[in-house]
């Protein structure tokens, strides 16, 4: 079922949409807006088709590998972009969201393509774990981008710079709301992802029933979760952190933790990845099992 659609197809469409967003900084035309929308929709359709084909090839996809996981995260972010573009057609949010979409697709090129293991009871936990962490990642990214936009918009207003030019950003109130909510939602999702990972490990039988706390991916993810909890606690205790620039700073810090987790996961010397590489068979772990050091059949690698 080779439809000829690959990552290059939707990356190119998103790339054209980004180029059109950039061109909007100089001149905004109706044709340009239609072309931008068309490119973004074409990219999303190709992206969806690609993921659909992966599901057809491998029932456990699109969480079958690190690569699929990144592509799925990019897809979720692309949907958010398109939705926002339809609601706020004059906004320049694409200048922030589309590079993030392309970055996720770009990183996926460096990620492993290990196929999904056969379905077992603990694998359900693994799937939930993977989905929650993917959504957590998208939420943290969204909060980070909203934070960046908040700081730019705030800077422009403070310094009396033109706000109704070609670079049109949402209001501070809207950005603060997205910022604030993304931080809260990300805490729940990352926490849920982390604990389902722990549970899936503990659900294993015998010697495998332990959590490899010293694994760099587990450590960095735990640090990120702790940071999110601390940030939420800080916001509860200190009213000034519930609004304005402080929320933006908190979401930017959360992104730094996320970047660390993703870097360790993709390029790090994880206990699980080492074991995979020593295996005589191709690597078989999904991203969910990779993060908490589970092999594809639930065994500790």
């Amino acid at each position: 079922m080779d439809s000829g659609i690959n990552m290059l197809c939707f990356s190119a469409s998103y790339g054209i949409a980004l180029a059109l967003e950039l061109s909007g900084l100089w001149a905004r035309t109706r044709i340009g807006r239609v072309a931008l929308l068309f490119s973004a929709i074409a990219g999303l359709v190709a992206h969806t088709w690609y993921l659909g084909r992966r599901v057809a090839e491998m029932p456990a996809a699109p969480l079958a590998s690190q690569q699929d996981w990144y592509v799925l995260a990019a897809w979720a972010l692309a949907i958010i972009y398109l939705t926002l573009k339809l609601y706020y057609p004059r906004s320049s949010m694409g200048l922030f969201l589309l590079p993030a979409v392309l970055a996720l697709v770009g990183i996926s090129r460096f990620a492993t393509k290990t196929p999904l293991a056969t379905f077992q009871a603990p694998r359900v936990w693994g799937q939930v774990h993977g989905v929650l962490l993917m959504l957590g990642t998208v939420t943290v990214l969204l909060g980070f981008l909203a934070g960046l936009m908040y700081l730019i918009q705030s800077y422009r207003l403070k310094h009396k710079l033109p706000t109704r030019g070609r670079l049109q950003l949402p209001s501070l109130e809207w950005l603060e709301r997205v910022n604030s909510r993304s931080l809260g939602v990300a805490t729940l999702l990352v926490g849920g992802g982390f604990f389902t990972g722990v549970l899936s490990r503990l659900a294993q039988q015998g010697e495998q029933s332990f959590v490899p706390w010293t694994d760099p991916v587990v450590l960095s993810l735990a640090a990120m979760f702790v940071w999110l909890v601390v940030a939420e606690g800080f916001r509860l205790v200190y009213p000034a952190a519930r609004q304005g620039q402080k929320v933006a700073y908190l979401t930017i810090a959360a992104f730094l933790f996320l970047a660390l987790v993703l870097a360790v996961m993709t390029w790090g010397d994880s206990l699980h990845l080492n074991a995979d590489s020593e295996s005589t068979e191709p690597p078989q772990a999904s991203i969910s099992t990779t993060i908490l050091g589970l092999s594809n059949n639930g065994d500790l690698a």
């Binding site: 918009q153 207003l157 706000t163 950003l169 949402p170 209001s171 501070l172 109130e173 809207w174 709301r177």
Partner: peptide, 10 residues
């Protein structure tokens, strides 16, 4: 319309 609306959504 140009400035306050950059701060407040509504």
């Amino acid at each position: 319309s140009d400035l306050a609306s950059c701060v407040f959504e509504t």
